[in-house]
């Protein structure tokens, strides 16, 4: 079937089997390999994307569910060559090691800050608890999200 959706700001029409998983559509059809698959079962969060602004696990979504939606993947988060505040914070606060969890983690954090622009460290931990990171111990990720929230509030 043909599906139409907005992908990282671009009108996109794709001919695809309706039961293909969104993670496969993104990685194999659209060449967007920033979304990672690490479990394929909704357990790790590495495949997180934003659908109409909300974080979704693309390994659990089928292509047909994207019809008419707005999708943002990690590749579409930076605007005009400028990092999103959360991306910049991940660089600045040392939140990236192997980086395989990073795209999903950043998008989960963006969604968290949309829902709660002033989270405490505990709320940040809660908010990213669906995303597994095997390298960092999470502390610097929590730092990054916390300082991103301050930056978004205009506090320096």
């Amino acid at each position: 079937m043909k599906i139409n959706f907005l992908l990282n700001g671009k009108e996109t029409e794709i001919e695809i089997e309706p039961d293909r998983r969104v993670i496969d559509l993104l990685r194999e059809e659209c060449g967007l390999t920033g979304s990672k698959e690490c479990c394929g079962a909704g357990e790790c969060g590495a495949c997180t994307i934003l659908v109409d602004g909300e974080s979704r696990l693309s390994c659990l979504m089928l292509a047909a569910q994207l019809e008419g939606r707005e999708v943002i993947t990690i590749e579409g988060l930076a605007k005009d060559g400028c990092f999103h505040v959360v991306q910049q914070a991940f660089v600045d606060y040392g939140a990236v090691q192997c980086g395989f969890c990073t795209p999903g983690m950043i998008l989960a954090a963006v969604d968290l800050l949309r829902r709660n622009p002033t989270p405490s460290r505990e709320q940040i931990r809660e908010g990213i608890s669906g995303n597994i990171c095997r390298c960092t111990g999470y502390q610097k990720i929590v730092d990054a999200v916390y300082f991103a929230s301050l930056a978004l509030q205009g506090v320096n």
Binding site: T33, F83, V96, T102, I106
Partner: peptide, 23 residues
Amino acid sequence: MNAPRADAFTKVTGKEQYAADYY
């Protein structure tokens, strides 16, 4: 110094190509 990790820039944008990302 706390030099930033060069790899962080490409990892936060999803551009870094891991072995799993080769098609």
